[in-house]
Amino acid sequence: MAGTDLWRANLPGFFHWAVWDDEEEEVFYHQGSGETLLLNPLGAFILKIIGSAEISTDKLVQLAANHFKLPIDQALIDCIEMSLRTFAQKGLIQTHARDYPEFQAG
């Protein structure tokens, strides 16, 4: 996947979260697909960001590095790309190339 492709949420209004102050992990429920996922902090961060706005992989890597105070290295990029693929396979998010115009019905 290209680092500049944009990721967006499928039915972000159907994103629901169970979050507790004293827990690192979070639980995500997607009303559209029925998926319930136990997420580590990085997975939860990624889905929350994409749920709020379209974003490229490159930008997501930058935000995650800042948020978790991590260096931008291949391990972080691989981890984020794997999470993106998993979420996409489950139908929670989708990607579209920045260069292609949005299809306009009618």
């Binding site: 629901h16 169970a18 507790w20 992990e25 979070e26 639980v27 429920y29 029925g34 319930t36 136990l38």
Partner: peptide
Amino acid sequence: KPRTLTRVAEQSFNYHILGEDGF
């Protein structure tokens, strides 16, 4: 709590039917 929630959800017969209410 997160692991408890997912484990109880797995043991539910109709969580998937109740949707957001179940969650």
